[in-house]
Amino acid sequence: MNNRIARIINAQRVNMGGNWIEQPLPHPSLERVGPFLLIHHWQDLLPGKQESEEVGVGPHPHRGFSPVTCIYSGSLRHRDSLGTDHIVYAGGTQWMDSGNGIIHSERPSDELAEQGGLLEIIQFWINTPKAHKMDAPRYQPLPKETTLQWEDNGWRIGLVQGEWNGQQSPIEAHHPMRIANLSSDQPGAAVRIPVPQDWVGVLYVLDGNATLDGQAITGRQMASVSAGAEEAVELVCTDAVRMLMLTGAELNEPVFSHGPFVMNTIQEVQQAIFDYHDGKMGMLVE
């Protein structure tokens, strides 16, 4: 077997606005993988008796990529300058194409902030091809109820984006990808994950233990998948494990990013900053 697992990386623990999160990507040894730019894993027990505006991330802009959030526990409220005000609960996904510019906020629902409880999310950033960076922004929610889910030899699979097992996610994207959440509580359960030969990607373990093409991986670690002759990665459960899979075709375009903007040149980023300050990305008042 031609092993597709290039390396296994420990996530870094970083402070983001007072919230401690796990960040496997970017990493000092790995800036990005194909179209995938960033992964942030946040798990926190909210104390309750808070206003939602006291928790999470307030209004901020984006341009040129898609920030996507999978909700594993709790609920997340999305508001944006398009007028959207929407809550996605555990098992669902918030997919936003920032396009030519949008302002949004990401906070726990009012109910979760007031009552308290566990909030666990992963946000990852997907680069948008140059041809679509200035498209109109859009918000694509995917609740648990409409997420395609099935079982395969002891593994539970929830398809976020792309095609798998003859099924197609309703989430539309500008680049060939397959994104899914996988979990198993059956030691020894094995599944082959299809990855086209010229695709790359990452597999991030939220918690638990597994092997990928025979290599051990544990919670808060990420495996990078390289192109190769083998058209699948073998995943075996060691003990109860949850995993996020991001795979896709390479995106061979220059990347210049600054804060919330991901473009191809420094001039494009400078223009994004000007446009934001000129109010061209709209307004969001909570």
Score class of each variant (00 low, 15 high):
222 M>K: 08
109 S>Y: 07
106 E>S: 05
271 Q>G: 07
275 D>S: 11
250 E>Q: 13
72 Y>P: 00
25 L>F: 01
168 Q>G: 01
177 M>T: 15
77 R>T: 02
16 M>W: 05
168 Q>L: 12
67 P>R: 04
36 F>D: 09
141 P>G: 11
235 L>V: 13
233 V>I: 15
108 P>L: 02
218 T>V: 03
208 G>Q: 07
219 G>L: 11
130 K>C: 05
265 T>F: 02
131 A>K: 11
256 F>P: 03
280 K>A: 11
53 E>G: 00
40 H>D: 15
16 M>R: 14
211 T>G: 04
149 Q>H: 07
11 A>D: 10
228 G>S: 07
254 P>N: 02
119 L>S: 11
45 L>K: 10
5 I>A: 12
50 Q>K: 15
72 Y>G: 04
115 Q>I: 10
199 W>P: 02
108 P>S: 04
221 Q>V: 07
218 T>N: 08
221 Q>H: 07
157 I>S: 03
182 L>K: 00
119 L>Q: 08
141 P>N: 12
12 Q>S: 09
28 P>N: 04
81 S>C: 06
140 Q>D: 09
68 V>L: 09
230 E>T: 14
107 R>P: 03
32 R>P: 00
171 I>T: 11
20 W>Q: 13
277 H>S: 12
180 A>D: 01
172 E>A: 14
271 Q>P: 02
149 Q>G: 07
109 S>W: 06
273 I>N: 08
281 M>Q: 05
275 D>W: 06
209 N>A: 14
112 L>Y: 08
70 C>A: 13
189 A>I: 06
183 S>Q: 12
183 S>A: 13
223 A>W: 03
158 G>A: 05
33 V>G: 05
256 F>C: 09
275 D>F: 08
19 N>G: 08
113 A>Y: 01
139 Y>D: 04
182 L>E: 06
4 R>L: 09
169 S>N: 04
202 V>D: 06
92 G>A: 06
39 I>E: 05
281 M>G: 08
123 Q>E: 13
33 V>W: 04
216 A>D: 14
114 E>I: 04
118 L>H: 06
264 N>C: 09
136 A>E: 14
217 I>F: 07
94 Q>A: 13
224 S>A: 14
200 V>G: 00
49 K>R: 13
246 L>P: 03
34 G>P: 00
166 G>C: 10
71 I>V: 15
212 L>H: 07
120 E>I: 03
283 M>P: 00
28 P>F: 10
115 Q>R: 14
105 S>G: 11
65 F>Q: 03
271 Q>K: 12
88 V>T: 05
203 L>M: 15
39 I>P: 04
21 I>K: 08
217 I>E: 01
221 Q>M: 00
229 A>V: 10
284 L>E: 01
43 Q>R: 15
145 E>Y: 07
277 H>W: 11
113 A>I: 01
154 G>M: 04
104 H>W: 05
202 V>I: 15
114 E>T: 05
98 S>H: 12
115 Q>S: 13
264 N>H: 09
193 I>Q: 10
49 K>S: 10
